[in-house]
Amino acid sequence: MKLYYTPGACSLAVHIILNELHLDYDLEKVDIKTHQTETGQDFFKINPKGAVPTLELSKDVFLTEIVAILPFLAELDPNKQMIPNMGLERARVLEWLG
């Protein structure tokens, strides 16, 4: 996995969960003003919306938007109980993320 992030942006929440779950991942900083990654890639080719966080799950498979990424990651380890499975409690977590 690779997290495309910008310091001070909401991508920090994804970074925290990746660490909490002890997942292997790489980081690549994005300059939102120029839409260039630190390796010189055009970020619009990675995420046409031009926004972070963007999580690369595998080659050419990307997940965007924090309200999609955080629940996806939280469900990778159900024993951590980071997000309820269903019901009002789950809805409240998603409400909070939105």
Results as ranks from 00 to 15, higher is better:
88 L>H: 13
65 E>C: 12
54 T>G: 09
7 P>H: 05
89 E>V: 08
57 L>H: 15
56 E>L: 03
10 C>P: 06
11 S>D: 06
70 L>P: 03
47 N>L: 06
62 F>H: 01
56 E>S: 00
37 T>S: 09
63 L>C: 12
15 H>A: 04
1 M>D: 04
1 M>L: 05
55 L>A: 04
70 L>Y: 03
17 I>N: 05
67 V>E: 00
72 F>Q: 08
82 M>W: 09
11 S>A: 08
35 H>V: 05
9 A>T: 09
34 T>D: 03
51 A>C: 07
92 R>Q: 14
2 K>D: 04
93 V>Y: 03
51 A>N: 12
8 G>S: 02
22 H>W: 12
35 H>I: 05
74 A>D: 07
60 D>Q: 13
33 K>H: 11
30 V>G: 09
10 C>Q: 02
65 E>M: 14
94 L>C: 04
96 W>Q: 07
95 E>L: 09
31 D>C: 09
33 K>R: 13
18 L>C: 06
14 V>W: 06
29 K>A: 07
21 L>G: 06
86 M>S: 12
59 K>N: 15
46 I>D: 04
74 A>M: 02
91 A>V: 11
94 L>T: 04
35 H>Y: 03
53 P>H: 11
50 G>K: 07
40 G>E: 12
58 S>T: 15
9 A>W: 03
50 G>F: 02
13 A>W: 02
90 R>D: 06
55 L>D: 04
22 H>S: 12
53 P>W: 11
52 V>K: 00
92 R>D: 14
93 V>R: 06
89 E>I: 09
93 V>L: 12
49 K>Q: 10
38 E>T: 05
53 P>G: 08
66 I>W: 02
22 H>I: 11
88 L>N: 10
36 Q>V: 05
79 N>I: 11
48 P>W: 00
16 I>G: 13
70 L>A: 07
13 A>V: 04
61 V>P: 00
26 D>W: 15
15 H>G: 01
67 V>Q: 05
52 V>M: 01
89 E>F: 03
15 H>Y: 02
33 K>M: 13
73 L>C: 06
56 E>M: 08
37 T>Y: 03
14 V>T: 13
58 S>N: 15
21 L>Y: 10
52 V>H: 00
25 Y>D: 07
30 V>Q: 07
59 K>T: 15
26 D>E: 15
61 V>L: 07
24 D>G: 15
51 A>G: 00
86 M>W: 05
43 F>Y: 02
41 Q>Y: 00
43 F>P: 01
43 F>K: 01
66 I>M: 08
65 E>F: 10
77 D>A: 12
13 A>E: 05
26 D>I: 14
60 D>G: 13
66 I>G: 00
52 V>N: 00
82 M>E: 10
69 I>V: 10
57 L>M: 14
51 A>W: 06
26 D>N: 08
31 D>G: 09
93 V>H: 11
68 A>M: 07
75 E>L: 02
56 E>Y: 04
84 P>D: 13
22 H>G: 12
51 A>S: 11
89 E>Q: 06
6 T>A: 12
49 K>L: 11
